[in-house]
Design a protein around this nucleic acid. Structure first.
Length: 403
RNA sequence: GGGGAUGUGGCACAGCGGCAACUGCGGCGGACUGUAAAUCCGCUCCUUCGGGUUCCUUGGUUCGAGUCCAAGCAUCCCCA
């Protein structure tokens, strides 16, 4: 293993908080592989780059010789993590959790080293808990302490509801740490309370407490809000290469260095150099963004895919050519009484518009093209001959080819 | 258990009983670009355009209800 100082350099890069740092140092000094914990709440099956941030940090731990325990929260899912929430989470069914967990693991393994990763389910030890044991765990925690949490505090002071069972979530998450004897628990910055709860409980159980390590929440492609599916500012790990590259190209300049640090496979030195270049104004954001796009696509789709995606991107957006792999759709092109086809309906069927009304508005706004030719406003009906095998386009980036 | 307040389109916030409903944000389309930022323009319930269906739910008053009344549901506040 590398010297402790070297390891710490890698580990601290990009982290938000390490509580406490000197305990982490002591653990590293033992020279034995540490057990790094990440709890996964399988609420939504699609991972994005934001989810990958802690995963990347864990991969760095693995590369340094440590091992990772991934906990699938099929037990804690019965509650739903209240962290950062302003309302109670809807509970998930067992089947949803399993299905989500499966896709989660598939995607996570693109980042993690499977050799050094153990996967466990916390339902295995949470579901058998009896009331006595439960109460025992709960007695180690204090309501006032839990109410200090920002999310609960906000909900409480803003008069939003907090269901009683939500208080139990940190308790169970802490119990996970006891069961697997974690050395370090990773999480997003919104997880800090839950991670600290783990420390408290481990100490109460007479164990060496885990170190809490949080990563910043990744800012989404809009550059302001955190990356989240609901804000539609996310880059999905399973996004198609060209799409992924394009989304990277669309991020704001200011957040490029952060993306390099948190999402790329670039070395610490390279990332530091990019930081400096941005700081003194010598950076070329456009070039760096393209390189970042290639790096990220390579990471999730395999070496070489990044360059391919970049070429496809240039064809599409620099030369305004129609991309090669556009979805094929078969639509009902039966003409109506006057021998025309209602284009608005076709656009809906092709998935390019939500409703016929929207399609009509798009046509009126000159946003619809057939084979590259803009459709004139008000021409909602078109000659079927124009449509057979035609390429439909809405806006700059939505295409469909008619069968 | 008692008293009070609130419930409008993804979000926020308007709306004397009489035009699908002000405005902002967001989103989408167009121009300009580096699918960045900034800026400008248009659109943002459904409808082959005739019309249809909306303002928590259900009833009621009315020629006419987002607006008035009643009950219910939900959330919040104060008291116990």
């Amino acid at each position: 293993m590398l010297p402790v100082e070297e390891q710490l350099k890698v580990i601290t890069s990009g982290t938000m908080q390490i509580v406490p740092l000197d305990e982490l140092k002591k653990k590293l000094e033992k020279g034995t592989p540490l057990n790094i914990k990440l709890g996964v709440d399988p609420t939504s099956p699609d991972l994005h780059l934001g989810h990958a941030v802690p995963l990347r940090k864990m991969r760095q731990f693995q590369d340094l010789g440590h091992k990772v325990t991934l906990i699938i929260g099929n037990g804690t899912a019965l509650i739903g993590d209240p962290s950062g929430r302003d309302s109670t989470r809807p509970p998930l069914t067992e089947e949803q959790v399993e299905a989500n967990a499966k896709t989660y693991v598939e995607q996570a393994m693109k980042v993690l080293d499977p050799e050094k990763t153990t996967i466990v389910h916390n339902g295995d030890w949470i579901k058998p808990l009896n009331l006595g044991k439960m109460l025992g765990l709960m007695s180690k925690f204090n309501v006032a302490r839990i109410l200090e949490r920002e999310d609960f505090h906000n909900r409480y002071t803003e008069g939003r509801s907090i269901a009683l069972h939500e208080f139990i979530y940190p308790v169970l998450q802490a119990y996970d740490s006891v069961v697997i004897d974690a050395d370090v628990e990773m999480g997003g910055n919104d997880q800090i309370f839950n991670l600290l709860a783990g420390r408290d409980l481990m100490r109460a159980e007479g164990m060496e407490p885990q170190v809490a390590l949080t990563m910043p929440l990744l800012v989404g492609t809009d550059g302001t809000k955190k990356m989240s599916k609901s804000y539609k500012n996310y880059i999905g790990l399973t996004d198609a290469p060209a799409d992924m590259f394009g989304k990277v190209m669309s991020i704001a300049d200011e957040i490029v260095p952060m993306y390099y640090r948190l999402c790329s496979t670039c070395s610490l030195d390279e990332v530091d150099a990019i930081d400096r270049a941005f700081a003194d104004g010598t950076a070329d954001p456009y070039k760096l963004k393209r390189a970042l796009g290639r790096n990220i696509v390579d990471l999730y789709h395999g070496a070489g895919e990044g360059e391919k995606a970049e070429r496809a991107f240039d064809d599409l957006f620099k030369k305004h050519e129609i991309p090669e792999d556009i979805p094929q759709v078969s639509c009902d092109l039966t003409p109506n009484d006057d021998g025309q086809v209602y284009l608005a309906r076709v656009l809906v069927e092709a998935g390019l518009a939500k409703s016929a009304s929207e399609a009509r508005r798009l046509i009126d706004g000159r946003g619809v093209k057939i084979n590259g030719e803009a459709v004139a406003p008000k021409s909602y009906n078109v000659d079927p001959a124009m449509l057979a095998g035609a390429t439909l386009q809405v806006g700059k980036r939505h295409f469909a080819k008619l069968a």
